[in-house]
Design a protein around this nucleic acid. Structure first.
Lengths: 190, 190
DNA sequence: TGGCGTTTGTTCGACATGCTAACGAACCTA
DNA sequence: TAGGTTCGTTAGCATGTCGAACAAACGCCA
């Protein structure tokens, strides 16, 4: 009766996820399959982030800050830059940085060139944490990815980028760009 | 710090024009590109979910519950099933359902067959909300997807599924949060 | 029938993210 | 020097999420 197994709820349900007719024309199934795969990706990521953060003793938001700051090295990053990069408010950044400071992961320095600014700089401990924190998701992905054949890799890259473009198109307006590893120094003077 | 060797400052963010400098055997750039694309996908989704939820007057978590419940129709779903499907604790589900009940989106019925259980059933209003709530992310994606050529669609599907498989494979242990059994109980027979 | 362990859902208390609004300090410009 | 702007922080609020404790219902078993 009501226990007919949960699952078949469109996107959420994973019940449909596995067998899809790959070779057909104009299939709504195909769209579904994409959506479902996307959901799976999202969900897997979510979960990984959580467990990761747990393992590292930090929450994922904190870790994100830590990673950005770590990538900046001694230059540090201002709360404003962090906020822009992470797309959250400065208030949120303040809270996150507070926690990292409390844990000895980063330090705040008042900028000498501009008294309003604060440089959030990584500490040795923070750096170690950032580096050692195994981003399980990425590692898994990287491992699998590098085991693929060349053409498969190429295809995957283009597919993912395509999807990314489809999704975040025109959502990037006045914000500084993405990030993962790179951080652009945003001089508003530009 | 996603990647310590992310020295390629050319692949970031918005400008992602897919430029891969070197095409040797090892393609760290390619891996980076994938990860970055993935991040973009994640973030875009996050943001869309938020704005969506805002537009619909519901938060994304609530909407997720609503969608699942709506998909179950009159059968409803138990909090336990919801918790498993969403991978959150029952306590969380209770809180979410509370809010949906308060908004008249769903109703709780005590199960007649098992007094311990509760069936969360969608209301007409909830159903309308669930259906009308435009999942902006999906819509955007669907639109773009359906504008693609056939072979492109096929390729995208297989790429996404591949990634999904890479990410959520074998992750069902080792982590407190994701212990649930939802994944395996919809195995298609294998 | 009665008792005891188990399952299910809820309540409670604690934290984390994230926001907006208000505010003070520093800066810049006129 | 005055006024406006930028930056960071503080304060207050809403939400999600968890674990622990708990009550009710179930099931099994003697």
């Amino acid at each position: 009766m009501s226990n007919k197994r949960h699952g078949t709820s469109g996107i959420e349900g994973s019940g449909v996820a596995y067998k899809i007719p790959l070779m057909s024309e104009a299939h709504p199934d195909r769209t579904d399959a994409c959506l479902i795969a996307l959901r799976r990706i999202l969900r897997a990521t979510e979960q990984y982030e959580r467990s990761l953060a747990q393992a590292a003793g930090l929450t994922s938001a904190q870790l994100r800050v830590l990673q950005i700051v770590a990538a900046r090295g001694q230059a540090g990053a201002t709360p404003k830059a962090l906020a822009m990069q992470m797309r959250v408010s400065q208030a949120t950044v303040t809270a996150l940085v507070d926690k990292l400071v409390a844990r000895g992961m980063v330090t705040r320095f008042r900028s000498r060139t501009d008294g309003r600014q604060t440089d959030v700089v990584i500490t040795p401990k923070g750096d170690e944490t950032a580096t050692s924190a195994p981003d399980a998701l990425q590692q898994r992905f990287v491992r699998a990815f590098e085991g693929m054949r060349d053409w498969e890799q190429a295809q995957l890259v283009s597919s993912l980028e395509r999807v990314a473009a489809m999704l975040d198109a025109e959502r990037i307006d006045a914000s500084p760009v993405l990030t993962i590893g790179e951080i652009k120094d945003d001089q508003p003077g530009a």
